[in-house]
């Protein structure tokens, strides 16, 4: 084995393991004898690796951090990082599995909506970095009649939660203080989308959500309408469709983002 590969094998193993004071002998013996405090020196690298990834998660999940507090967030982040090493050299979308990880983390059981807040924050991040595309206006969306298949804007992300997750997110996404709020336990249907510069989180009617899910799955306008009216018999398809088209929900040509 080459000396370089030998060192990098040992170092990568040390850096990805859960934080701890133990520096393997295989690493320590590589140092110049004059270097004092070998353990302390290696710890600097490990701290750097973990600090950078914890910061990336903090940037992406500010509302989650506020809900659980800085200390618990750091604990959860470190546990997650030890299990989920980044595979690529950009951290823009690191943390895709953090919501699921939080859902399975026993101490978060007291905050049943936490994982959904995390899902919303990650959808927001994805919409922020998604491919740019010019939305179709209402007139263009209506042309083509019932057979037209309208792809959603590449930034569009649909999600639903049994909790008022968008309201919880709005209250916690920055440091502003608020009085105690009681939220009804009502299911939310959300569209996260960035038709222009700003990411928008829109609360949808069940019928509109069903319609967009159908369009996203490749349905025609007639099929999407049937799905919407099946989900919500009182649904006013024309009005909702026009509003969604006016607000940049659809594009003319198909295209989901390429994954990084």
């Amino acid at each position: 084995m080459s000396t370089l590969r030998e060192f990098q094998t040992a170092m990568a193993g040390y850096l990805t393991a859960t934080p701890g004071p133990n520096v393997p002998e295989a690493l320590r013996k590589l140092l110049l004898p004059g270097e004092s405090r070998a353990d302390r020196r290696f710890t600097i690298y490990k701290n750097n690796v973990y600090a950078r990834l914890v910061d990336a998660l903090r940037d992406t999940f500010p509302a989650v951090e506020r809900l659980v507090g800085e200390e618990f967030f750091r604990f959860a982040a470190v546990e997650y990082i030890a299990k989920t090493s980044p595979k690529i050299a950009t951290l823009l979308t690191y943390g895709a599995e953090f919501p699921g990880f939080l859902a399975a983390l026993p101490p978060t059981a007291g905050i049943p909506y936490l994982a959904d807040v995390a899902r919303l924050e990650f959808a927001y991040l994805e919409a922020y970095h998604a491919r740019d595309a010019s939305p179709l206006g209402r007139a263009a969306a209506i042309v083509g009649g019932d057979d037209v298949r309208l792809p959603l804007h590449p930034s569009a992300r649909l999600m639903t939660s049994p909790f008022q997750v968008s309201r919880i997110w709005e209250l916690n996404r920055n440091e502003a203080s608020f009085d105690n709020v009681t939220l009804p336990q009502l299911r939310e249907y959300l569209l996260v989308i960035r038709p222009a510069r700003e990411v928008e989180v829109r609360r949808l009617h069940l019928g509109a959500y069903a319609m967009l899910l159908a369009f996203d799955g490749g349905a025609s306008r007639a099929e999407a309408r049937r799905e919407a009216e099946w989900a919500d018999p009182d649904f006013d398809f024309q009005t909702h469709f026009a509003t969604l088209a006016d607000t940049g929900t659809f594009v003319g040509t198909s295209g989901k983002d390429r994954p990084l």
Binding site: L4, F7, A12, R52, S85, P86, K87, A89
Partner: peptide, 24 residues
């Protein structure tokens, strides 16, 4: 270096300066 075994470590890590590492 910052990458090993398909993992990105997101730090700028040092190497021994040898003829082997120079070539690489």
């Amino acid at each position: 270096w910052s990458r090993f075994d398909g993992i990105s470590l997101h730090d700028l890590l040092p190497i021994p300066y040898t003829n082997e590492s120079l070539k690489l």
